[in-house]
Design a protein around this nucleic acid. Structure first.
Length: 590
RNA sequence: GAUCACGUAGCUCAAAAGGAUAGAGCAACUGCCUUCUAAGCAGUAGGUUACAGGUUCGAAUCCUGUCGUGAUCACCA
């Protein structure tokens, strides 16, 4: 047995040999779905080929089909329907596939070869004034999963979060705490630090809105109305910028509370960063670059001293880069951090995982960096994902319309524990429920294409039946249970593969397992974990189908049980591997 | 107003990146536990892929327009 028996490779080779093409064109393969076995198991679509090779569909189909059938004698046969060249796998080909999967641990092949890139993925990046919410969870889970997927392909991944720890919004929670906190701390209130600080941020908002109403000013989103408490926050910001000792101490203390809270949440989610950046450390860097850009004539200055870039040629307006008081705006900071990161890490790629609401921001950022002449601009990319909405509309931190991460996590735990069978110890029940609850949550957020919206209804919560993480975990523990039973009954025996026959359920199983590497590749290319999620679900479903139809471990048929064991084993490994790439743990029993 | 996304079964999502008869789950109804874990399996029902044109052998997918939903267009971050 060798790899040359792989039908895709033989087909590629056939085209080279038959038609003497220098470059084999991109082949249009179609892996047939269960419902359509009349179409064979693998189809080569011939239409585009017939344009390159100036022959009829029928002739090309016959040429390639005959060549492949001859090379893989006893393994595949072919038939032609219109422009579709269908190959039907024979039992021996299924044997080839399953043995290949057993021997080569085939889905890790990619990691051994080819190039290694250093890739920075920036994700989560919260504000240090309130707890993480469902939107951060979606973001972090995508980031975490992509890190694992790209790492599987041999890339070196650096996971970074940059914490927005300075600015007026931080001063808002500070001033509220200074005025109304009475020296209370998360410890004294027995509250998680991020929630504690978040309450003061909300308190600021409440007071601010009350003051606006008292002023009876007409509300306008575009113009910020100065009220007494906002004025106090601004004074605090000024003091912070001047490095006022007392202010800085309060700031450090409150931020520490928030970070402790964040870390607890990240730990529960199984998310860790290689590097944490703080905006307060880097926000000044961009300023110098902008001023240099002004000198070089890339930017221009208005009478009041503010610095702009003209983006009219790119279809945008003018964009401010430095305020008239010479302070940085958001995008100035991002210019600085990008330059700094390339200096420090010299990476091959920098992927920003940031919501779609910032598409414009990143387009502009990349244009600015290009104008500044940095050669690495094409290494930057913005992975844009849609937001998480509540049925009542977008999740905004303002007005408390959020689902915070900790609440939803603990809700998931409690639902899982209620449904867990009582036959297990209290300890196992607790631990398993956490894995099941988190699995359901993570799967729910990752199975949806990042570019699509998620509407999250807190009442309906998250399902544990059907296309869910739980279903897959359950299937996996069934598999482990079967394996356990197998080894209680038999030993692995040596047997001849030569006369093995598979039924349709086993064939479907083997075929879907064999597609795993393709799915991984696609998922990595498109930076899309949902492809893996949906594939794993299909795989679990196919297995449950087989499980229902066939007695997999049969005490009176050792050889048959041994062969089933091979399929079971590969299935279990793939389910686990795929789910781990989504950051989801599996259980040996449920 | 301009720009960018999205619109698929009652609901939540798929559809191998242009391929053959658009698939799952939930909810509803009908069956299957003395038999490897019923958080499972099988079946019934549910569709003019928002609408109208176009491109080609072939469109849910690409192009144009219309409608709907959302986001963005700050000396906010």
């Amino acid at each position: 047995m060798n790899d040359d028996q792989s039908i895709e490779k033989v087909i590629k080779k056939s085209i080279y040999i038959l038609y003497k093409l220098d470059i084999c064109p991109e082949l249009n393969f179609q892996y047939t779905k269960k419902k359509h076995h009349s179409r064979g198991d693998l189809t080569l679509v011939l239409f585009s080929l017939s344009k390159k090779i100036k022959k009829s569909l029928q002739d090309i189909g016959y040429d390639i089909g005959s060549y492949v059938q001859n090379k893989l004698k006893g393994l595949v046969i072919f038939s032609i329907v219109g422009g579709f060249l269908n190959f039907i796998f024979e039992d021996n080909y299924y044997i080839f596939l399953i043995r290949k999967m057993l021997i080569t641990n085939f889905f890790h092949d990619e990691s051994k070869k080819k190039y290694y890139q250093k890739i920075i993925i920036e994700f989560s990046s919260p504000n240090a004034n309130k707890p993480l919410h469902l939107g951060h969870m979606r973001n972090s889970l995508i980031g975490n999963s992509l890190s694992k997927i790209l790492n599987l392909f041999g890339h070196k991944i650096i996971k970074i979060q940059i914490i927005n720890d300075r600015g007026i919004h931080i001063c808002k929670s500070m001033i509220a705490w200074l005025k109304f906190g009475n020296g209370k701390t998360p410890d004294s209130e027995k509250e998680k630090g991020d929630h504690f600080v978040g309450r003061y941020y909300n308190l600021f908002d409440k007071i601010y809105h009350k003051e606006i109403i008292e002023k009876k000013t007409k509300h306008n989103d575009k113009i910020q109305i100065i009220t007494p408490i906002l004025n106090q926050a601004k004074i605090l910001l000024k003091k912070w910028e001047e490095g006022d000792y007392k202010t800085r101490n309060v700031w450090k203390t409150m931020n520490r509370w928030v970070y402790n809270g964040f870390n607890e949440t990240y730990k529960k989610l199984g998310i860790f960063f290689d590097k944490v950046e703080y905006e307060s450390d880097v926000y000044q860097i961009g300023k110098k670059i902008v001023i240099e850009g002004l000198k070089k004539g890339i930017f221009f200055q208005k009478k009041d001293g503010s610095i702009y870039i003209d983006l009219v040629n790119e279809g945008f307006d003018e964009k401010i880069l430095l305020r008239s008081d010479e302070t940085s705006v958001y995008i100035t900071q991002d210019i600085g951090t990008a330059v700094e990161r390339f200096k420090k890490y010299n990476m091959d790629k920098l992927i920003y995982i940031v919501g779609r609401e910032q598409d414009y921001h990143f387009k502009v950022l990349f244009i600015i960096l290009k104008r500044l002449g940095y050669p690495w601009v094409n290494k930057l990319s913005h992975l844009s994902y849609e937001m998480v909405y509540l049925p009542s509309g977008i999740m905004r931190s303002r007005g408390g319309k959020v689902v915070n991460a900790d609440d939803i996590i603990s809700k998931m735990f409690s639902i899982a524990i209620e449904n867990f069978p009582n036959k297990y110890s209290k300890e196992e029940k607790k631990k398993s429920s956490e894995i099941i609850g988190l699995g359901a949550l993570k799967y729910f957020l990752l199975k949806i294409d990042p570019k699509k919206k998620i509407v999250f209804s807190p009442e309906k919560s998250i399902d544990f039946k059907g296309n869910t993480g739980t279903y897959i975990q359950y299937t996996y523990s069934r598999i482990r249970s079967l394996e356990k039973k197998f080894f209680e009954l038999f030993l692995l025996v040596n047997y001849s593969w030569s006369n093995v026959k598979f039924d349709i359920y086993e064939k479907n199983m083997i075929k879907i397992l064999y597609q795993y590497p393709l799915v991984l590749k696609k998922s990595a290319n498109h930076l899309n974990p949902s492809l893996i999620a949906n594939y794993i679900y299909e795989t679990a479903k196919t297995f449950n189908h087989l499980y229902q139809k066939k007695k997999l471990i049969d005490p009176i048929n050792i050889v048959s049980s041994n062969i089933s064991m091979n399929i079971i084993h590969v299935t279990g490994n793939i389910l686990k591997s795929g789910m781990n790439l989504l950051g989801i743990e599996m259980l040996d029993r449920m």
